[in-house]
């Protein structure tokens, strides 16, 4: 089973990203998928997490993730606020929304890191809500590139399943842009 934690803030589309990944993985052929928000109340701007579990076989655990295989960080300011690495297994992949290069992020965990300028890409593709960039779709693109788990093709299908036609085109172009722009350990730049 592959366990993915999404770290973001209320209003960033964290829960939606976790759902779209689960749907995409199911369409790709994984028999077991779950997605869940942090249980409890949510507040705009407050740190929150969501999870996606992906498995070849139906999933029989609904417990919260103890050590994720992959952590996706939608808001890099959370790296200073939350012990994100503390809930990531040794060797687990961390994917960060940042304009910085991986080696300049200050994340020194010995784990593989992938970076993408999700906010920049969101602005370029007009994915803006109440003045803030919606970085969940760009980070799904980075996930497709860096995690080697759910392909870009099926994440595109996941977006088509979840998003309305009015916003779909911009999200698809942002997804592909982020896929190409993702840099990091083990990726051919």
């Amino acid at each position: 089973m592959h366990e993915v934690i999404w770290h973001g803030r209320g209003g960033q589309g964290v829960v939606l990203a976790a759902q779209i990944l689960a749907e995409s993985a199911y369409m790709q052929g994984f028999k077991g998928v779950t997605s869940a928000p942090t249980f409890g109340p949510e507040r705009r701007g407050a740190p929150l997490t969501a999870s996606t579990k992906i498995s070849e076989t139906p999933i029989r655990t609904f417990a919260q993730i103890e050590y994720a295989d992959i952590a996706v960080v939608l808001d890099p300011s959370l790296l200073k606020v939350i012990n994100i690495l503390g809930s990531l297994r040794p060797g687990g992949l961390i994917i960060v929304n940042t304009p910085l290069k991986a080696e300049d992020t200050g994340i020194d965990s010995g784990r593989p890191i992938a970076v993408v300028d999700g906010a920049g890409i969101a602005f370029r593709h007009h994915l803006i809500k109440e003045g803030a960039p919606m970085v969940n779709t760009p980070l799904l693109g980075a996930f497709a590139r860096a995690a080697n788990l759910v392909s870009l093709e099926f994440i595109e299908k996941g977006l088509k399943w979840k998003l309305s036609s009015t916003v779909l085109a911009n999200n698809l172009s942002a997804l592909r842009d982020a896929y190409e722009a993702t840099r990091g350990s083990g990726l051919e730049n």
Partner: peptide
Amino acid sequence: YDGFVLSHTMMP
């Protein structure tokens, strides 16, 4: 059925 654990967790 269990609140949040099932009520808010998506699965096939």
